[in-house]
C-alpha cells in the first residue's frame, strides 16, 4: 500500500533490571523485602518514520520516549522486537553495511553542557568520527569541518576552541554539526531545544528546518513541549508509560485528539491565549514505571474509566485513515 519506512520499530520491548548484589541476596534470604527490580520502560512499541518526514514523539517523564530514541539510534540494545532500516532487520547486518546503517541514524541530545566532551576541541568533536570511519581523508578534514560549521551557523575560525567557550545555543549547534559530520539520513533529536532560552530556541528550530531541506534529512523529534511538536512535526506519536497511546497527523491530533490522555495533555498545557484562566488538572500522579497499573496504563487517571480498562490493555488500532489510538472507548 505504501512505501517502506526509512526507520521502523517493531514491537520493541525494553526492560531495565536491577539485580540484587550479594549483600542484597543475603538480606533477601534473611527475610528482607528485596527482590530483583524490573522497569518495563518500553512495552511493545511500534512506529515507522517515513523518508523526509518529521515525526514528533511526545509524552511525560517515564513514558519511555528517550529510551526509544536511544534504541533507534543504536546506543542501547532492545530487550525484544526488531529495528528495521528500509525494511531490513538492523541487527542482522554485518561489516560495512552494519556500520553505514548505524551512521545513517544520528542523535542530537538535550543537555548542551554534557553532550560535548569538555576536553576536546570543536574540530576534534566534529572531525573524529568521519576521519576514523574513512569518510574523509586527513587532508580534506579541515575544509570539511569548516563547511559543516558554516552550515550550522558557526564561524569556522572558532574550531580550535573548547566547548565551555561557547554559549548554550552555540553548543547545540556544535552537537548538530557532530551528528551531520557522518552524513546521516535520519536525525533523532531528544529534547534538543528543551534546555535553551526562548529566543535561542527559535534559532535552533529554524536551523533544524533549514538543514532538513538542504540535506534531505528525516527527523524523529522527541519533546515534552506540545507547542514545538505542533510547529515542527508532520505526524505525532503520543506515549504514556512505555506504550504508544495515539498516533496521528499533527493537524488532526491537535484539532481532535482521540485518546483521553492526549485530550488531558492538550487541555493541561498553558497557552499564550489564556487570560486569568481557571486551571483544572487531571487528577492523580503519573504511576511509577516500576509498578504500572494493570490493563490500560492510564485507567487510574481517566475520566471515562470502565471495568474493562482495569483488566485488559487496549490495542492500538486504526480509528481513521492514518490515525491510531489505543482506547476501549473506540470499540464500544
Amino acid at each position: 500500500m505504501e512505501a517502506t519506512p526509512l526507520l521502523a520499530a517493531e514491537r520493541i520491548d525494553k526492560r531495565f533490571e536491577r539485580r540484587l548484589d550479594f549483600a542484597g541476596r543475603l538480606a533477601a534470604r534473611l527475610g528482607a523485602a528485596l527482590g530483583n527490580e524490573t522497569v518495563h520502560a518500553l512495552d511493545g512499541v511500534s512506529l515507522a518514520v517515513m523518508r523526509g518526514e518529521v515525526l514528533g514523539v511526545v509524552g511525560e517523564s517515564g513514558c519511555g520516549k528517550s529510551t526509544l530514541g536511544r534504541i533507534l539510534a543504536g546506543i542501547m540494545p532492545a530487550s525484544g522486537g526488531r529495528i528495521l532500516w528500509q525494511g531490513a532487520d538492523r541487527d542482522r547486518l554485518t561489516g560495512t553495511e552494519r556500520r553505514s546503517v548505524k551512521l545513517a541514524v544520528q542523535m542530537v541530545f538535550q543537555d548542551p553542557a554534557s553532550s560535548l566532551n569538555p576536553r576536546m576541541r570543536v574540530a576534534d568533536i566534529i572531525g573524529e568520527a568521519p576521519l576514523v570511519h574513512g569518510q574523509v581523508t586527513r587532508a580534506e578534514l579541515g575544509d570539511y569541518i569548516d563547511t559543516i560549521l558554516r552550515d550550522v551557523g558557526l564561524d569556522p575560525a572558532m574550531k580550535q576552541r573548547y566547548p565551555h567557550q561557547f554559549s548554550g545555543g552555540q553548543r547545540q549547534r556544535i552537537g548538530i554539526a557532530r551528528a551531520l559530520a557522518v552524513r546521516p539520513q535520519c536525525i533523532i533529536a531528544d529534547e534538543a531545544v528543551a534546555a535553551l532560552d526562548v529566543s535561542i530556541r527559535a534559532q535552533i528550530i529554524n536551523l533544524f528546518d533549514e538543514l532538513r531541506q538542504k540535506r534531505d534529512l528525516t527527523y524523529l523529534f522527541i519533546s515534552h513541549d506540545l507547542g514545538i511538536v505542533r510547529f515542527i512535526a508532520d505526524r505525532v506519536v503520543v506515549m504514556y508509560l512505555g506504550r504508544v497511546v495515539e498516533s496521528a497527523p499533527t493537524s488532526a491530533l491537535f484539532a481532535a485528539p482521540n485518546h483521553p490522555y492526549t485530550i488531558a495533555l492538550l487541555a493541561g498545557a498553558p497557552r499564550l491565549e489564556d487570560r486569568k484562566r481557571a486551571f483544572a488538572a487531571i487528577e492523580g500522579e503519573i504511576p511509577s514505571p516500576l509498578n504500572p497499573p494493570r490493563g490500560c496504563h492510564f485507567h487510574p487517571r481517566c475520566p471515562h474509566v470502565m471495568a474493562r480498562c482495569r483488566e485488559e490493555a487496549p490495542r492500538l488500532s486504526e480509528i481513521a485513515p492514518g490515525r491510531l489510538s489505543a482506547c476501549h472507548l473506540n470499540q464500544a
Binding site: G227, R230, F231
Partner: peptide, 24 residues
C-alpha cells in the same frame, strides 16, 4: 515582541520562526 514572535505556538506549521539574532 521578539520573545513573543519566537514562540512556536503562535507560528504557522512548517513556516519559519521569527528569532532574535545573537545572544544576551
Amino acid at each position: 515582541a521578539g520573545l513573543l514572535a519566537s514562540l512556536p505556538e503562535r507560528a504557522a506549521h512548517g513556516g519559519r520562526l521569527a528569532s532574535i539574532p545573537g545572544m544576551a
